[in-house]
């Protein structure tokens, strides 16, 4: 490995190279005082450089433990870990099915769709569902809702929370015969209290908040879901430098992925759509361009198929590409009602 790849300041790097230290191996045997006199820097600065250098060189070696490379994990262990993780249900069984049980922890999921298709609704639904207690097969975690558009409606969150609590008590009544009745202790108010709401008004704030989340998360370990609604909004206005936009967005998605892994939480990014001119016709596609579309592991597109709302898995390393219908009801996201039922009962819902 070469000196130029060490994370040290430019002037230090310049001094090292001009003094003949071009590779890490040349640094491995030198003492800090010799280095200090060679480079004409203070001894403490030389110690710092050596520390950084030794950290860099260790990366390639086995350190005697199970893993060959520091920080790596073998696929078998990963499988076990993935199996032990619970998913966040979407409250729509069909959708859960194609997603392999729901929204996975430790993953970044991007969800996009046309205006009014139900992106924000799904976001609120997930923020409520992540709090379903463990007794009911949920995660019992808390949620962070990052609102860049101002579209979070607290009235709607209350409606969905109330419906969720009702469903849980129904479920416990249903199970009462076999298992001891587990009372639903959680109240709609508690659910609202466990949603941390951040209102973001510019892209700078968005970057800052994503940076800050790591610290926030270490103070609030029970957060299991981060929703960004939407990742797009501020980056579509007032942003002339597209190269910078790509860099900044890339940084954001890397940080979110790191968060997801480190605190084993789910990250859901909502995205808007835009029209793109390809092959002589306009097509709908998710916003932020092609390089962004590489940065999310999973991508789900919500769309109209005839009279029904559908979700389509556009990109995923582990899931089959499939689509499933869902519907938005007054109680939240639910299974799409069978067609016959729809036409019969159209007016009384």
């Amino acid at each position: 490995m070469e000196i130029s790849r060490l994370p040290i300041s430019a002037s230090q790097r310049g001094k090292l190279i001009s003094a003949g230290y071009t590779s890490l191996s040349s640094l491995s045997s030198v003492s800090s005082s010799a280095l200090a006199s060679d480079l004409r820097i203070s001894e403490s600065e030389a110690v710092e450089i050596l520390k950084v250098a030794s950290r860099g060189s260790r990366l390639g070696w086995s350190d005697g433990t199970n893993s060959v490379i520091n920080g790596a994990q073998n696929a078998w262990d990963m499988l076990h870990e993935e199996e032990s993780l619970t998913c966040i249900t979407t409250s729509c069984a069909d959708l859960d099915n194609i997603l392999g049980g729901g929204i996975n922890c430790k993953e970044v999921m991007e969800i996009g769709g046309v205006p009014g298709i139900g992106k924000t609704q799904l976001g609120i639904q997930l923020a409520v569902n992540v709090q379903i207690p463990r007794e009911f097969g949920g995660l019992g975690g808390k949620a962070i809702y990052i609102d860049t558009e101002g579209s979070f409606m607290v009235e709607r969150a209350l409606q969905i929370a109330e419906a969720c609590v009702e469903d849980m008590s129904e479920y416990s009544r249903f199970l009462r015969n076999d298992v001891q009745a587990c009372q639903v202790k959680i109240q709609p108010k508690d659910i609202l209290e466990n949603i941390f709401y951040f209102r973001i008004c510019s892209y700078t704030e968005q970057i800052a908040l994503i940076n800050y989340l790591e610290k926030f998360m270490s103070e609030h370990k029970d957060v299991k879901l981060v929703i960004v609604d939407s990742i797009t909004f501020h980056f579509r206005q007032d942003f002339d430098d597209m190269a910078l936009r790509t860099r900044v967005l890339g940084g954001i998605s890397l940080k979110l992925m790191k968060l997801a892994k480190e605190f084993s939480l789910a990250v859901v990014l909502l995205n808007q759509v835009t029209t793109k001119y390809t092959d002589g016709s306009f097509q709908l596609t998710l916003a932020l361009g092609d390089s962004w579309s590489h940065s999310c592991t999973n991508r789900v597109i919500l769309y109209w198929n005839g009279d029904e709302r559908y979700a389509y898995i556009d990109k995923s390393p582990s899931l089959q590409s499939a689509s499933a219908p869902y519907s938005v009801t007054s109680r939240g996201i639910r299974n799409s009602a069978p067609r016959k039922y729809c036409s019969d009962h159209q007016s009384n819902v």
């Binding site: 607290v154 209290e193 466990n194 209102r199 970057i207 800052a208 908040l209 940076n211």
Partner: peptide
């Protein structure tokens, strides 16, 4: 980042 981030509120 910490200074620029807006404070959070709970939905309640």
């Amino acid at each position: 980042s910490e200074i620029v981030s807006p404070p959070y509120q709970t939905a309640l």
